[in-house]
């Protein structure tokens, strides 16, 4: 396959940045999107150019590092798929592909397609934990959990913190991420004591980071590689309202 790429290039946080066009030839349809970029980068290095910086780690869809906006869609148009799991066979030969970093003020561009997602870490630090006595591991099944709750909590816990939800949201809201993290703890017995204070602390931190407000557009869940549903946001809202009513 031969492709034309239009890639966001930005040498550092203070650079204004611009789209740069590259031709990539002989791309195998079996390559992943990141492998295709690797091929381009090898050539750029040989030509003495600066390779395109992009984040990646596991390349198996579980770490959440590899986000980029491909043809206007976070992680590309393939549903429930991270960029690293997206394969070139989903593109047409001769296609032009635009590649941009996540766009959100709380996710400043570090270089090219790499953004700083520390804002997510601070939201987790604000309340995304349970205060349990440290020490020996508790016995399995010492606390009964309903199967439905365990399943739903696990589904919410599959959020990999990639930030696609923020990137796709027209409001730049981090509600789906924050709600996923709140949900997986608030569904379990261990999460109950801090349930309301957690919701309040995490939502307040999310707002303090400069993310926008949720208007329930549903763009987030549509691009989420883990298919976190909007239910999570409703649950977060309910807990947050209760926390504030107290």
């Amino acid at each position: 396959m031969n492709l034309t790429l239009k890639v966001w290039r930005q040498s550092g946080p203070s650079d204004k940045g611009r789209m740069v066009t590259y031709k990539v030839e002989d791309v195998s349809p079996d390559m992943s999107f990141l492998e295709m970029l690797d091929v381009l980068n090898e050539r750029l290095i040989l030509e003495g150019d600066d390779p395109i910086a992009f984040d990646h780690d596991c390349r198996e869809g579980i770490c959440g590092m590899c986000g980029m906006v491909i043809n206007g869609v976070a992680h590309g148009e393939q549903r429930a798929t991270t960029t690293c799991q997206l394969h070139m066979r989903h593109f047409e030969d001769g296609a032009t592909i635009t590649i941009e970093p996540w766009r959100a003020a709380p996710f400043p561009v570090v270089k090219d397609l790499v953004v700083d997602r520390s804002a997510f870490d601070r939201i987790i630090q604000a309340g995304g934990f349970v205060s349990v006595p440290a020490g020996s591991a508790p016995d399995a099944h010492s606390i009964p959990v309903r199967k439905e709750d365990a399943d739903a909590a696990f589904d919410a816990a599959t959020c990999i913190g990639c930030g696609a939800c923020v990137a796709a949201c027209p409001n730049g809201s981090a509600s789906l991420f924050t709600a996923a993290k709140i949900t997986h703890l608030s569904l379990l017995p261990q999460g109950q004591p801090e349930r309301l204070s957690r919701a309040k602390a995490m939502v307040d931190q999310m707002d303090a980071e400069g993310f926008g407000g949720c208007t329930n557009t549903g763009e987030c869940t549509a691009v989420c590689p883990k298919g976190i549903p909007l239910d999570a946001i409703a649950r977060m809202n309910a807990d947050y309202l209760k926390a504030n009513a107290k």
């Binding site: 239009k6 966001w8 940045g17 789209m19 906006v69 043809n71 206007g72 635009t98 941009e100 766009r103 959100a104 003020a105 709380p106 027209p170 409001n171 730049g172 809201s173 400069g210 993310f211 926008g212 407000g213």
Partner: peptide, 11 residues
């Protein structure tokens, strides 16, 4: 929303 996304997407 405007403040949360100062740089718009090209696509």
């Amino acid at each position: 929303a405007g403040k949360a996304r100062p740089v718009k997407y090209v696509a």
